[in-house]
Amino acid sequence: MTKSELIQQLAEENPHLYQRDIERIVSTIFNEIGAALAEGKRVELRGFGAFSVKERESRVGRNPRTGATVSVDAKRIPFFKTGKQLRERLNGAD
């Protein structure tokens, strides 16, 4: 499922809303999650999962092809942990 398919499904179920507004709703949701993560916040959606940001120290890496050493800057990695309910549903305990 892509973002546009998600928008399409929502549009079919909500004929009283403009497609334009549904697009804004979907964009707002994912945008807000991204904005919170950019501020280093956690996003907790019970039953679905939680997004968080993990910090990685700078390190000396290697180009696997040439073997040359390269320094890798410290960075932040977005992380998702599946919620209990969704995990159970994925494994057939709906």
Partner: peptide, 12 residues
């Protein structure tokens, strides 16, 4: 420090 469903609903 934590965003929840309520914050997403508010944003929408």
């Amino acid at each position: 420090q934590t965003l929840t469903r309520a914050d997403l609903s508010e944003a929408v």
